[in-house]
Every structure is written in C-alpha cells, then in structure tokens.
C-alpha cells in the first residue's frame, strides 16, 4: 500500500457517509416491509415475515396494484421502443454538423430542464382545448417521451462519438447502400448500447410521476397509484409495495448492465 495523504481518509469517510445517506432510507423500508402481521410503520420490528409483501397482491381496500403495474409495464415498453426508434436516427444525423443542428440540440436539452409541471399542465391544456380525453397511453405516453427521449438521444450521441467509422467506410467501398450499411454493420455494433438505453428508458418511464400526474386520465400508472396510497394507507403494505417496485427497478438496471456486457462480449468473440 502506498502512503495516502490525510485528505484521502477524510474524503473516503465522507464518501462512505454519502453512500449511507443514499442507501440508508431504502434499506430501512426493505427491513420494515419484511415484518410479520403485527408490524407497524416504525421501528422496532417485532417479528419478521412476508406478510406485507403478500398483502400487496391481495385485494386491497384502497386500490389495486396489479392493473397499474400492467399499465406501467406496457407504457414503459412502448416508451422504450419509441425512444430508441427516434433517438438512434437523430443521433446518426448528429455525427455530422448540419445547419440547425444546434437548435435541435438545445430543444432536446430544453425538454430535460423545463420544469416538469409545465409539461404536465401543457399537455393537459392541449388535450382539453382539442377536446381529447387524457389517457395513460396517449397524453401519458407523450409526457414520458419528453423525459426519456433526451436521455436516449444524449447517450446515443456519446455512443456514436466513440464509434469507429472505418467499418462503415469499408462496407461502402464494397458497394453497400446506406440502408445495408446501417442494417449489417452499424446496428450490430451498437446493439449492446441499444439494450442498455432501452432498459434505462424503461425504468425512467416506469418510475415517472410528475409529468404524468395531471394527465393520466381515469386509470393510474403504478407511481400514481402509490402516490394515492401515501395519503390513506397506514400499514407496512405501503413499504412492501415500495420494496417490490424498487427491487423491480434494481433488477431492470441489473438487466441493462448485464445485457450490455453480454452483447458486447459476444461481439468481441
């Protein structure tokens, strides 16, 4: 071990505290959701068990989580597909400078930094004025796209920045058309990144609340259902539901990294 300066230990301790701050609350609700039937909303834990996790799947007095979960799942998949479909061509266009590229870039950034309540209100007003009905799969989908597409686009720009163009040039020299080059050369090469971007887009949509909150129509997505629950549920079932969706999100993030590495490895072989 080389000699480390004092600042290393100081900052390492700070970093450790930061991780505690970051994960402590999540660990707390994991523990509290694993209580027996006599469990309460606060410590101490009297007994451990899976009672409350089971409760989530039972018929609830205050709401039903299976259908909102299915909606969020479908919506996430749709958002994921659309985000990839539009952001990949856009990122390809950005490999070369073109007139107006700057404006389009700023438009994308604007979509990320516009206060999210404006997106919700704006789309709500738009549907109202046009006389359309708001629904999670129409207005909700649009709101989710304003949040996920910029992320997908920025990540894809990063991917293409590190992309070696010599393979494409070779294909073109051999007489391949633009479409063939994309389909045969570029697509397989960016496939690992697409898996990652797709799943991250999915989790962003799956957990989105603010932009959807005013415009989901009659049927709630899962985060909206959970939000409704916070005001009228006073049992650890709330934590159990939180634990389950967080575990699901973690699994998705894990799948994103695993998928990325799996395809990247297969590519190298």
């Amino acid at each position: 071990m080389r000699n480390r300066p004092l600042s290393f230990y100081f900052l390492a301790a700070f970093f450790g505290l930061f991780l505690l701050f970051l994960y402590g609350p999540l660990i707390t609700i994991f523990i509290l959701s694993l209580q027996g039937p006599d469990g309460a909303l606060t410590f101490p834990v009297r007994s451990f068990g899976f009672h409350w996790l089971g409760q989530v799947f039972q018929e609830q007095r205050v709401g039903n989580f299976v259908e909102p979960f299915q909606r969020s799942l479908l919506l996430g998949l749709g958002v994921m597909g659309l985000a990839i479909l539009v952001s990949v061509p856009a990122a390809i266009a950005f490999r070369n400078r073109f007139r107006g590229s700057r404006i389009i870039f700023y438009l994308t950034i604007a979509s990320l930094i516009v206060p999210s309540v404006l997106v919700s209100l704006g789309i709500g007003v738009m549907f109202q004025v046009l006389g359309w009905e708001t629904n999670w799969f129409s207005s909700g989908l649009g709101a989710h796209l304003t949040w996920t597409v910029p992320f997908a686009f920025l990540i894809m720009i990063g991917v293409f920045n590190r992309f070696n163009p010599s393979y494409e040039e070779a294909a073109r020299d051999l007489g391949a058309s633009d479409f063939t080059t994309f389909y045969e050369i570029v697509l397989p090469l960016i496939a690992p990144s697409l898996v990652g971007v797709g799943i991250l887009g999915f989790t962003l949509s799956y957990d989105e609340f603010t932009r959807t909150s005013l415009i989901s129509g009659q049927d709630n997505t899962l985060p909206l259902e959970i939000f409704g629950m916070t005001t009228n549920v006073t049992s650890p079932a709330l934590y159990a539901l939180g634990t389950l969706t967080t575990v699901f999100s973690f699994a998705m993030i894990g799948a994103a990294f695993w998928g990325y590495q799996f395809f990247a490895k297969r590519q190298r072989e």
């Binding site: 659309l82 266009a93 649009g142 796209l145």
Partner: peptide, 23 residues
C-alpha cells in the same frame, strides 16, 4: 440529416413546444 432528426423533433414539437405555447 433533416429526415433523420424529424421523428424526434416532431415529438418535441407536439409534446413540448406546442403545449408550452398553449400555456
């Protein structure tokens, strides 16, 4: 390049720019 950025730009125009103008 303009054709390639059209779908994404349309999404932003319909679900971001137009709603905000309407606000």
């Amino acid at each position: 390049p303009y054709l390639l950025v059209t779908p994404q730009t349309l999404i932003f125009l319909v679900f971001l720019v137009f709603p905000i103008l309407l606000i």
